[in-house]
Computed example of a mutant assay.
Amino acid sequence: MGGVTSTIAARFAFFPPTPPSYTVVADAATGRLLIPEISRPPARRRRRDGGGDSSSGAAAAEEEDATEVVRLRTRRGNEIVAVYVRHARASATLLYSHGNAADLGQMYGLFVELSRRLRVNIFGYDYAGYGRSTGKPTEYNTYADIEAAYNCLKEKYGVPDEDIILYGQSVGSGPTIDLAARLPNLRAVVLHSPILSGLRVLYPVKKTFWFDILEC
């Protein structure tokens, strides 16, 4: 019974964009994963004197080179998509768990802007069932998703806990708190418009029900 009611609660809590706003392809020459909707060759503007590319074109090229797309296998058997936006002078890395009704294609512009303005690296990922990630969006899948993202930062990119800031927005506050509770040496934890629980997204209930999800 608990599984059935939790599934119903999950349907109220998770709203992945349909269809996804992006696709993932492999570059034929390098095998590098790309999101065509965001990984376009930079638009290069000509100087008025007809000379070479402007500095904005060079900046766009650097931005594209600094973004990496990866697929990660979670402990629950799903394959999730993540993007790593790097800043040359980053002082920290944000592990960003985005809000509801959004996916990486829609979030990428914000990631780039945050990276530039805050001088940080941004590692964002799509939950199971969001974007091009496989599986279904459930409470326990989100916990496995953020764990896979964290492990990637540690194992693939060598980022220490002391440089990681967990950033959870809306429904992303659930997996953010779950992971943060097990990592005492993080740089910081940021909760942006956090939810109280899955049911409380839609209903102003004051009780905690046994079948509720993402209780923060």
Rank of each mutant, 00 (worst) to 15 (best):
T5E: 11
S6M: 15
S6H: 08
A13Q: 09
F15K: 14
P17K: 08
T18D: 09
T18K: 13
P19Q: 07
P19Y: 10
P20M: 06
P20V: 09
S21P: 07
S21K: 08
T23Y: 05
T23G: 00
T23P: 04
T23R: 13
V24L: 03
A29Q: 14
R32T: 14
I35Q: 04
I35K: 01
P36K: 03
P36A: 04
E37N: 05
I38R: 13
I38K: 10
S39W: 00
S39H: 12
R40K: 15
P41L: 11
A43R: 15
R44S: 03
R45G: 00
R48V: 01
R48N: 04
G51A: 11
S54M: 05
S55Q: 14
S56P: 00
A61V: 13
E62C: 05
E63K: 12
V69F: 10
R71H: 04
R73W: 01
R73I: 03
T74P: 01
T74G: 04
R75S: 14
R76A: 11
G77R: 07
G77K: 08
N78T: 09
A82R: 04
V85P: 09
R86M: 15
H87S: 14
R89M: 05
L94W: 15
Y96M: 13
S97Y: 02
H98L: 15
N100K: 04
N100L: 08
N100A: 07
D103M: 08
D103T: 07
M107P: 00
G109P: 02
G109C: 06
F111G: 00
V112M: 12
S115V: 08
R117H: 07
I122W: 05
F123V: 13
D126N: 10
D126P: 09
Y127Q: 05
Y130W: 06
G131A: 13
S133G: 07
P137E: 03
T138K: 08
E139S: 10
Y140I: 11
N141Y: 12
N141M: 01
Y143E: 04
D145L: 03
I146Q: 06
E147T: 11
A149Q: 03
N151C: 07
C152Y: 07
L153E: 01
V159P: 09
D161N: 12
L166Q: 01
L166M: 08
Q169S: 13
Q169D: 10
S170M: 10
S173K: 06
P175M: 11
P175R: 03
D178T: 04
L179S: 01
R182N: 13
L183Q: 11
L186E: 03
L186W: 03
R187Y: 01
R187D: 03
A188P: 02
A188C: 04
V189L: 08
V190T: 01
L191I: 05
P194H: 08
S197H: 02
S197D: 11
G198L: 06
G198R: 09
L199E: 14
R200C: 10
V201L: 14
V201F: 02
L202E: 13
Y203T: 12
Y203V: 15
V205A: 13
V205C: 09
K207A: 15
K207P: 00
T208A: 08
F211H: 15
E215K: 14
C216E: 10
